[in-house]
Design a protein around this nucleic acid. Structure first.
Lengths: 325, 325
DNA sequence: ACTTGCTTTGAAACGCGTTTCATACATTAT
DNA sequence: ATAATGTATGAAACGCGTTTCAAAGCAAGT
């Protein structure tokens, strides 16, 4: 394939003139501009974008680090990120790490190698020290609460969301409360664990470790939870479920085996998935799409203005009361 | 940041020697190899990957063209693609086009500009001519049936899947059959339309245009469909629904408004989503994850071997009989 | 008439890593 | 002893587009 020197030769001009024409810069005569476009046509020329990125010292690519995609949270966040990326003419490069620390470090290394201009971290296993170490390489946005740490972040206050839902259950009279969660590690999960401890102590109730159901990510996990619940001698009367998909699995399977929701077991989900509406699941709406939108806007703002002020943006949640709790 | 020439100077060797060391090539003395690594550490050196891609004339990136992510089909396909990409050390660059022809052409242009080594097309609006025009630029895999066209493809025979499901309904005695679908354009949708025409004629039944429900992508769309069905004077007794999410929406909303499934309306979904199992939806299992896996493997095989034989791979489907049909 | 600013154009450096080819020396085979 | 092959190393070209700086000419202002 033809390169810019071939093109210049064909048009009878210099490579600088060709570059001016291709990039729409001024100070080129009409005659020479025309000759260049004719040469482009004749040679079927396209720029090599690797050379452009090398010469300019930047790309129009933002990396996205996430464990996997096929989960409503991650696909909603990416949808939000993508909407803004399209708007500003950026591409997204996926780093699907499956919570593997080596892979997460590899993604950070790619930022350093200038494969992309910034990185959005949807969820991770690696310590914050790793992000701190790579901060100088380009903007990194974390989609989690980072406390006093000097990171760019956009987050949902899962602690407060959990507090709100737990207090609602306590107010309804529940004293035997458990919860379902995807993972126990990670700051979002630890915030929820802290809220659980705090609110139950506040209500004078001892939290029960066996009423915490881990590894709850998908619909099928909800099925497993209700079966475990049935098998318990002493059962919680309410469950907070950190995914509407899982809550739906619980509600649907409860219907099949005759467990009455909310009489025997009250369910509060999170996300406000369409399934929650159709199944009447009380849920805490989490703005995942907006989280993605904001994460991209933070990176874009940094890249456009060079403003390296690392701020944290909180997004609101909302308890939506339906029939399951 | 330091470049390879800085590094060479620091180590007291040539850039060729540095390159040999960094890439693990032979014919470098131990003494000089050591000096290079010490210089890497001292200067905190990382390669610029744009320069590597330019020099080598290839990347380790594959593009993925899709309309949006937040849909079970697309997120399952990407999961399959990602699994294989990780395995072979590739990154995925997303092109979320929302069926916009300009954006789809832009993605093809990026292949030509060598932004990535190949492109997987999950779904598209642009004509096959566009893909034919860009075929010389690198491997393009289409995730659809391409007939006699000379494209690399991996596909599910939606025509046969529809035929199988329709014949099953006819065998059960249904004569008033409709279907729900996401889009009417695109080869997958046209294959289903053809199957609908063919099987109903074969059964001596006139197909009804008003029993075809378009724009059915998500759960909420299922809710709308059942409400439209209720409002019909003459209603189909069975619906094929090309997404289990939509089928679930129909089944759940039918439950809420007192429509008996399958007595009043038989439902057959597609995908074999976990929701289908929990709701007892009869469904045709579609191997979307495997589709993604295979699509990536086809591209990878081409890139590794240079074998440009454009084959088409069909993946099987399976009717799973539950309670809704 | 002279000075300043704008326009036009191209040579060559810059961005940065890989690869090729030449040179010199050492080892092995004949 | 000589030829062939392997080892070690570096100069410079290659991959390809952007940008800078110099040179020349033209127009406008003083």
């Amino acid at each position: 394939m033809a390169n810019i020197r071939d093109l210049a030769k064909e048009a009878g001009v210099s490579v600088a003139t060709v570059s001016r024409v291709l990039n729409g810069y001024p100070y080129v005569s009409e005659e020479k501009r025309k000759a260049v476009w004719e040469a482009v046509e004749k040679l079927n020329y396209s720029k090599n974008i690797q050379a452009v990125h090398l010469a300019k010292g930047r790309t129009t690519i933002v990396g996205v680090m996430l464990p996997y995609i096929h989960h409503p949270y991650f696909s909603a966040v990416i949808e939000g990120i993508s909407k803004e990326a399209l708007r500003y003419g950026y591409q997204l490069l996926l780093f699907q790490t499956n919570y593997d620390v080596e892979r997460e470090l590899e993604a950070l290394e790619r930022l350093r190698m200038r494969q992309m201009d910034g990185l959005i971290v949807c969820s991770h296993e690696v310590d914050w020290e790793a992000f701190a170490a790579y901060q100088e390489e380009g903007p990194i946005v974390l989609c989690e609460q980072v406390g006093e740490q000097d990171f760019l972040a956009v987050y949902i206050d899962h602690y407060q969301a959990f507090v709100q839902a737990l207090r609602y259950l306590v107010k309804k009279g529940h004293r035997r409360i458990g919860y379902c969660i995807g993972r126990m590690t990670g700051p979002n999960s630890q915030a929820r664990a802290a809220a659980y401890q705090d609110v139950l102590r506040e209500a004078g109730v001892i939290p029960r470790r066996q009423w915490i159901f881990e590894g709850c990510l998908f619909l099928e996990d909800g099925k497993r939870v209700i079966e475990q619940w049935v098998a318990m001698e002493e059962r919680p009367s309410a469950l907070l479920v950190t995914s509407d998909q899982v809550a739906a699995g619980i509600v649907l399977q409860a219907g099949r085996i005759g467990v009455r929701i909310p009489e025997e077991l009250a369910i509060i989900g999170f996300d406000n998935d369409p399934l929650a509406e159709l199944l009447g699941i009380t849920t805490v709406a989490l703005p995942h799409f907006a989280l993605g939108e904001k994460a991209f806007r933070l990176i874009h703002h940094w890249l456009e203005t060079g403003n390296v002020h690392r701020k944290q943006v909180e997004l609101p949640t909302q308890l939506i009361i339906r029939t399951t709790g």
